[in-house]
Deep mutational scan, measured.
Amino acid sequence: DEVEIEDFQYDEDSETYFYPCPCGDNFSITKEDLENGEDVATCPSCSLIIKVIYD
């Protein structure tokens, strides 16, 4: 799936974006990952991944 970065929750302390996963955990991707060109957020509890859409 693809999710807009605006739909993520941002945690300023950890500089990490979170998005709810269907399994009950959260996908996460850090601001640093995005700045380095990464665009895939992973869920630590299951095998799902999502593509992050940002400009």
Rank of each mutant, 00 (worst) to 15 (best):
L34I: 04
C43V: 00
S47H: 12
I29G: 04
G24P: 01
D55N: 15
L34G: 09
P22F: 03
F18D: 05
Q9W: 01
L48C: 04
I49L: 11
C21R: 00
P20R: 05
D39Y: 04
L34A: 13
I5S: 02
V40P: 03
Y10K: 12
D25T: 09
E4F: 11
P20C: 08
G37T: 06
F8T: 02
D33F: 13
K51F: 05
D55E: 15
D25E: 15
E38A: 09
E15Y: 11
Y17I: 01
V40D: 09
N26G: 11
L34Q: 08
Y19K: 11
E38L: 06
D55G: 10
D55F: 05
D13V: 09
V52K: 01
C21F: 00
Y54S: 08
E32R: 09
V40K: 08
T16A: 06
L48W: 06
E6R: 04
I53S: 07
I49M: 08
C23H: 02
D7A: 12
C43L: 00
V3N: 01
F8G: 01
S45H: 08
I29D: 00
G24W: 02
D11A: 09
Y19R: 09
N36A: 14
C46K: 00
V40W: 14
C43Q: 00
L34Y: 14
E15A: 15
F18V: 11
E6W: 01
I49V: 09
I50C: 07
C21S: 01
F18H: 12
D55H: 02
Y19D: 04
D55C: 10
C46F: 00
D25L: 09
C43E: 00
F8P: 00
E32N: 01
D55P: 14
C46D: 06
C23A: 07
D11F: 13
Q9N: 06
N26E: 05
P22C: 07
N36P: 07
I50F: 06
S45D: 03
C21N: 01
P20E: 10
S14P: 06
Y10W: 10
S28L: 08
G37I: 10
D1E: 15
E32Q: 12
S14D: 07
L48V: 09
Q9K: 06
S28H: 06
K31W: 02
Y10L: 15
G24C: 05
V3L: 10
L48E: 13
E2K: 14
E15K: 13
S14A: 09
V3P: 01
I50E: 07
T42Q: 14
P44G: 11
I29P: 05
G24V: 04
V40C: 11
C23N: 11
C43N: 01
A41Y: 02
E38H: 07
D39H: 07
C23D: 11
T42I: 05
C23S: 04
K51T: 13
